[in-house]
Computed example of a mutant assay.
Amino acid sequence: MSSPRACTFFDIDGVIRDVSRSYRRALADTVEYFTHGAYRPTQKEIDDLKAEGCWNNDWDGAQELIYRYFEQHGHQRHQVALDYDTLVTFFEDRYTGQNWSGYIQDEPLLVDLDYFQAFSTAAIAWGFVSGATRDSAEYVLKQRLQLHHPLLIAMEDAPGKPNPQGLICAYRQAIPDGDVPVFYVGDTVADMQTVVNARHAVPSRWYGLGVIPPHVQPADRPHYGDRLRAAGATAVFESTRDITPAVLDAVLGESAGHD
């Protein structure tokens, strides 16, 4: 694409794939195991943790929930015998398994190859900025979606969100010269805060588009959307498929009307 008129970057977990039965299941398993079966967080409790905006990494999130459990039962963190590397190994045994045999197999895709082709046809560059490991991200992008050489910034490539470095790096790769509107599609408070932080770091037109992930129950979806807006989302959508080139044009038109 010689001269894209905009670029759109996507988070992966909860946006491109439904991770409620994979990453989140592995997180809950990990917390349950390291609290000796005493505590297993619910989906809502995991959402509440992620709403704090600083637990985008699920290994860190699991560790934090374990610490909080023991704190509630009178223990200080330094008293908890919890080795981070052992926690990560346990988590990945559940999530990845041997030869991708773990929970990663239980991830329904939320979009398909044609979805991205529509952006290319509309002269909108696209790519991915994710807190997932590169292996996990490439598994879904290359093997399952059949995308060839997708622009990807993964866990190993940049600090965790809401640090905007990964998003800014993706933008500079997609648009080495020039200035076009930038959209980031995400499903967490940290995703939206990343856009806000990028806006402060690099003068450009940055837009956070929130997606309510599939696991959120109907009664909780309005509140979840409100959280994303409060964190900086320009607009919130019920699914990733609702975000189309025409919708991006509408967002830009509405933004121009407010200038």
Results as ranks from 00 to 15, higher is better:
Q43P: 00
D187Y: 09
A256W: 09
V247C: 10
R199A: 12
T8S: 13
V15P: 05
G178Q: 06
D48Y: 11
T42E: 00
H223E: 12
Y84E: 06
G127I: 12
Q165W: 02
T133G: 13
E52K: 15
R229C: 06
L228F: 07
S239F: 00
N99K: 02
S2R: 14
H215R: 11
E238I: 00
C7W: 09
S255Y: 09
H36K: 13
L110N: 09
C169K: 15
A219V: 10
L82D: 10
V211N: 06
G37V: 06
S101G: 04
A198W: 05
A154Q: 05
H149E: 15
I104W: 01
D48M: 12
C54Q: 08
F128K: 08
F237L: 01
F70L: 07
A170I: 08
M155H: 13
Q43K: 10
G131N: 12
K44F: 11
I66R: 07
S2H: 14
V15F: 12
V247I: 15
V180E: 01
H73K: 09
P41K: 13
F90R: 03
T133M: 10
R25C: 03
Q72D: 07
D18L: 03
Y207D: 02
L248V: 07
Q217R: 14
Q193H: 06
C169G: 00
E107P: 04
T121L: 13
A233M: 09
A235G: 01
G232A: 09
I66A: 06
V140N: 02
H148R: 14
Q146N: 15
M192T: 07
V15A: 08
V202S: 06
S204Q: 11
G210F: 08
M1R: 12
A233H: 12
G14W: 11
K50A: 13
H200K: 14
D242A: 15
E138R: 15
G178V: 03
Y139H: 15
A81G: 00
T96K: 05
P203L: 09
G186C: 03
N163F: 01
V189L: 06
V251R: 06
F91Y: 13
A123W: 04
T42H: 04
A174P: 12
A219W: 01
L147F: 02
